[in-house]
Design a protein around this nucleic acid. Structure first.
Lengths: 182, 182
DNA sequence: AAAATTCGTTTAATATAATTGACACTATGG
DNA sequence: CCATAGTGTCAATTATATTAAACGAATTTT
């Protein structure tokens, strides 16, 4: 098991300040079962795990993506964004590159004629963003469009994609990827 | 059950061109069980579902977010963003509210003195964003900060949080939540 | 202090999931 | 036409999840 279902459930339950019995009452399963699950002495059926999570409430998908980490930094001034610039494309990540999280939020700046390259990017997860300033040419899975301020995109990152600034002006984008790319 | 685990597994399996027996061989689970699961005649334990998905391979989280439907929209003009405005806080979602995805990417606009309310929000997942224009006062887990253009935030959404525009000018933010809030 | 809550854990009984080994069906080829 | 190998399903057995009730420890009440 790559995830410790028991510890995970316990963390989630406690984060919501619920006792095993309180949670049990809202869910239609017994407190004893919740105890056994949290000790990893049984592997709950999907249907009972669903019942338990319904009482929190939390979706199954959320449970398996949930990260019960510590207390990371919340606020970031623009100077505190970690710079992961690579040439003509300046990338500023919200939060540490190392911290465990479920997303990358990025402030991207494409200089004039910046290009992520012809050998299209492709990786796991999904990404989306909104253009804040300037114009960008985006190619996703064969299709190409030019987006201006206020325009947006969202796609599964397995689709080959490429960002090109075909103008003489800088272009700024706020984007997010899940799971984190950086 | 809000999701049909059986049909879901069948769709995933067939998408990868595997027979029940082929999949069973790679997973350490019997073909009979796979048959029963797909007919929804049993609710598999998390451990057995995990074993099955390992043979594909696919993570549990991916399984529950997976959408066996067609290909979604990638590009969005600002007019195509789906408006989910609620009074003084204008929210524009990238992509459909219904489509299955792993994030919400939002273009948020806080009118003068807009406030998400004193009864602090709290929900599953994580959210982050960057301020594009104006200033916003953000409270997360007891701590309060005022952020300006280029500043950013990132936190687990279970922490009680509140957004307030305490200025006379509009404030614009690009944000993302994972898993999707909307 | 003793009694009453509340907490998480445990045990024995029961319900259900999972395995095994067969079955019926389809297709392909000798 | 029969043989062989593929598919998904099913009945009986075994293994395991789940229930209901009781337990001991730690707090709170009176």
């Amino acid at each position: 098991m790559d995830i410790d279902v028991g510890a995970h459930l316990k963390a989630v339950r406690q984060m919501y300040g619920l006792s095993q019995r309180e949670l049990a009452k809202r869910t239609g399963v017994t407190n004893g079962l919740i105890s056994l699950i949290e000790q990893n002495r049984v592997s709950p059926s999907v249907s009972s795990l669903k019942k338990v999570l319904d009482g929190i409430p939390m979706a199954l998908a959320d449970f398996f993506t949930f990260d019960p980490a510590g207390k990371p930094q919340v606020f970031f001034t623009k100077e505190e964004l970690t710079d992961i610039g690579s040439g003509a494309v300046e990338l500023r990540l919200v939060g540490s590159r190392l911290a465990k999280r479920s997303m990358s939020v990025l402030h991207e700046r494409y200089r004039a004629h910046a290009d992520t390259g012809a050998d299209m990017l492709t990786h796991a997860g999904e990404e989306g963003g909104v253009v804040v300033r300037g114009r960008i040419e985006l190619t996703v899975g064969g299709e190409t469009r030019t987006l201006g301020p206020g325009d947006a995109y969202y796609f599964a990152s397995v689709m080959p994609h490429r960002f090109r600034n075909i103008t003489r002006e800088e272009c700024e984008i706020i984007s997010a990827s899940s799971p984190p790319t950086f």
